[in-house]
Nucleic acid binder design. Structure first.
Lengths: 189, 189, 189, 189
DNA sequence: CATGAATGAGTGTTCATTCAT
DNA sequence: GATGAATGAACACTCATTCAT
């Protein structure tokens, strides 16, 4: 159950090298020769693991989105705590692995023309969306539609700071403060 | 008669066609031959107007960011009205010219490795940032640091819905609602 | 009679700029745009003066070879003096205008595939050849065939140092010494 | 069986075809597509063997200069014989492989702007220079400086007839005759 | 004479992909 | 699996030349 299909092995190595290359040079700059070189194999050997570049890109999409599972809002009765925990986890991840957000931004753009990448991203995002809406719904202050809109707003704001991690703390603080009761909001800051 | 220079002429034509191609195929898919073909000239003639592809991309960046001037928050005493107007204008632009937001997203990613595009985007964004912070500062409810963080949050949320215009109405409504909920806001009405 | 057809005027200017560009970048690197730019006119205007690049190259060939008239062996009864004067003049020219020899070397190579340049060079070279053979013939020590071979040898040696002017003094000294009587030969050195 | 590596193989084939093309069309006219075509491979495959055109040109320079090893003056006690043998070998090479001299002339010109070609030529030429000076030094008639100047003169003359092989016999005869005319030379016979 | 716009053939180079070994 | 050689379509860019103004 652990590492079901990746992590070690040539395939996983290749995906991680490709991920790093996308992070530094963009999807546009991704070169199969560099990926192979980064793993220490010939570039034509790479095609034994990924028949086509597209397959590798899709694997990178799966890999990248999977890394976000650590940010899932924890279970619990207190919506404010769950939201705060979620934003904290995201902030920590953004600080320590900013490339994860960069690559996601790259994939978001690619997804417009690439159904497979689109699907991988949607799989990830629908989970995120649902979990977040759940948090706001249990807060009980709003109806479901508003809760969903609020979740969407948080997601949008997170996406919006993917390329500028230095702005994230202030933005996340605002998000947390605003959707919390007036009194706590001010003292949290 | 004044300012006719920007939109007419081969240069402007080329920029607009390039812009459209970026919107549909991404910066990655931008091909000079297609740009030239879209204008009806030989691809080598394009180099007469833009010595290099980079020059064309920079012109696209200038063109794209310039289109956002219509969304500038209007002057006036009422911060809630100014914010609502700004979000309305953005929503209208997003509805009618979604490519503008797509291209901006593309440029944002390119800007990570392209100082010239970075500069063009920064020029545009710093104006946006300042104007928005100004709105919140005059609202008087928060100090300057909070106003700036709030502006950043709005910017982040707008950036976050660039690729999903269908979510924008709900998100923008949440943004407007949240920052007009306070006591001061209601008493002015 | 002075400056019969060149020197001043756009044509002459263009030829001299082209000559300089060939000297520095080779015939291979000659660009009409640079020639025009060097004179301060548009590159399409250049075609009013030289319908084609070939015409300009031929003009450069004429110009380059014409500069060698100052090295013609002087008239006089003393063959040794005539040879020494000739070699002196060549050495002086090589010192002060090395580009002249570089361009000639370029043209020599081009002449293999370019009959017009071939003709210009032959015109110049046949005069040189005849004059030099004349010097050796009047020396009286050898028959005409030997005189011509000697002239050819001097020409070959001069051509051979065109690209290495620093070797020219020693080589020219050897040439002069060898074809002079034993006694004078040693004291000239 | 040893050394079969230099002449066989795609690399060697490509170099020889490139050499021939330089001989006929000049370095200026060298086209990678023609080289590949001459070997019967796709022009992009050429880049598998030579990453850049420059690498191919340098290989041509190495190849061309290496062909001259057959003209090295033989060892032996008699300077006149050594010089005559050298000139004979050069004359034979010039007759049977005139392209070798043409290509060398092309490379000489290119070397002015190409340090790598310059180095290849210098490697070859310094050997030639040293060997020739050695011949004249052992002749004993002149001091070392004069011997070097004489070697330089022979080299210059040889270079000077590279493009006109028909003049070489007469010139080489003059060179041999002149430096074997002295009293010491005759008394050895 | 001079210009700016346009042309089109051609240049070296790149890169994912294929295939025989 | 792994490799090296080969492919071919595509790319940005160059440059002499032409032509309408």
């Amino acid at each position: 159950m652990v590492g079901g299909e990746m992590s070690a092995g040539r395939r996983g190595e290749l995906v991680r090298v490709a991920f790093d290359l996308v992070a530094s040079g963009g999807l546009e700059g991704l070169r199969l020769r560099q990926v192979a070189e980064g793993v220490g194999i010939d570039h034509s050997t790479l095609h034994h693991h990924f028949p086509t570049k597209q397959h590798l890109v899709e694997a990178v999409a799966e890999y990248a989105t999977a890394q976000f599972h650590v940010t899932a809002p924890p279970a619990g009765p207190d919506p404010r705590f769950r939201l705060a925990s979620h934003l904290d986890a995201l902030l920590t991840l953004l600080r320590h692995r900013p490339e994860l957000f960069v690559v996601t931004a790259e994939l978001d753009l690619r997804a417009r023309r690439d159904p497979a990448v689109r699907a991988a991203l949607d799989r990830h995002e629908s989970g995120w969306r649902t979990a977040l809406a759940g948090v706001f719904v249990t807060a009980g202050r709003d109806d479901e539609a508003v809760a969903e809109a609020t979740a969407e707003t948080v997601i949008a704001a997170v996406k919006g700071v993917r390329l500028t991690p230095e702005l994230a703390p202030a933005v996340f603080a605002r998000l947390a403060a605003v959707w919390t009761d007036g009194t706590e909001a001010t003292e949290e800051e």
